[in-house]
Simulated scan of single mutants.
Amino acid sequence: MAQSLYEVHTLKGGQWVIDSTYPDRESSIEVAKQLHGEKRFDGVKVIRDTFDPKTGDGKEIVVYDTSKAPREKSAAPPPAAAKAAEAAAAVAATGSAPSRPAGKPRKGRNQDVSVAVKAILWLTVILVGGLGVLYLVSKAGDLMGKGF
């Protein structure tokens, strides 16, 4: 006859640890709910571990789980690194860089426009100032020509 045992596992720092074991489902789920309510763990789950001594086979089934997709924090690359890796793979596969999706502005476009507007304004100020200086020099020359 197969024997069942309920294990309460806790997730902290990316690692699952067996917190306690119980002979019945109800008490193990009750403890798991209490642990989850304490907010000390990233996740809590109850696993029914069934072992058949005649065949030597074991089977584990998750019967309660508060965690989302359990992942190790250090194993998942940051989204920017993952996108860069995908872009590099696409360039290597096709030989050309993938185009941006239509309607999606590239990052920093507002900043590029701002720099361009500032450059145009400065160039306009310099041009008008230069023309003003030339006009004043011309008027000064006319006045000096009349005076001599």
Rank of each mutant, 00 (worst) to 15 (best):
Y22V: 00
Y22G: 01
Y22D: 02
P23N: 12
P23V: 03
P23G: 07
P23W: 02
R25W: 08
R25L: 11
E26W: 11
E26T: 11
S27R: 07
S27I: 09
S27M: 12
S27D: 09
S27H: 04
S28V: 02
S28R: 01
S28N: 04
I29R: 04
I29K: 11
E30Y: 12
V31R: 14
V31Y: 08
A32I: 02
A32C: 07
A32Q: 06
K33N: 08
K33S: 12
Q34E: 15
Q34A: 14
L35M: 10
L35I: 00
L35P: 03
H36W: 12
G37D: 14
G37H: 07
E38H: 07
E38F: 01
K39T: 09
R40G: 11
R40E: 14
F41R: 04
F41T: 02
F41M: 01
D42M: 02
G43Q: 03
G43D: 00
V44I: 11
V46Q: 07
V46H: 05
V46K: 03
V46W: 06
R48I: 02
D49H: 13
D49P: 00
T50E: 11
T50D: 11
F51D: 02
F51H: 07
F51M: 00
D52Q: 03
D52S: 07
K54S: 05
K54D: 05
K54W: 00
K54L: 06
K54Q: 05
T55Q: 02
T55S: 09
G56S: 03
G58V: 00
G58N: 08
G58R: 04
K59Q: 14
E60Q: 15
E60F: 06
I61L: 15
V62H: 08
V62F: 10
V63F: 07
Y64S: 09
Y64T: 09
T66N: 07
T66K: 05
S67T: 07
S67E: 07
S67L: 01
S67C: 01
A69R: 15
A69M: 10
R71L: 13
E72T: 09
E72S: 14
E72F: 07
K73Y: 05
S74C: 03
S74W: 13
A75N: 08
A75M: 09
A75Q: 11
A76L: 14
A76E: 09
P77G: 11
P77L: 13
P78D: 15
P78H: 13
P78E: 10
P79A: 10
P79I: 05
A81K: 10
A81D: 12
A81R: 10
A81I: 09
A81P: 01
A81F: 05
A82R: 15
K83R: 15
K83V: 14
K83P: 00
K83N: 06
A84T: 11
A84M: 13
A85R: 11
A85T: 09
A85W: 13
A85M: 11
E86Y: 10
E86G: 10
E86N: 09
E86M: 15
A90P: 01
A90R: 14
A90Q: 06
V91A: 10
A93G: 05
A93N: 02
A93L: 05
A93T: 07
A93Y: 04
T94M: 06
T94P: 01
T94V: 07
G95Q: 04
G95W: 00
G95Y: 03
S96W: 02
S96K: 15
A97S: 13
A97M: 12
A97L: 15
S99A: 15
S99W: 10
R100A: 15
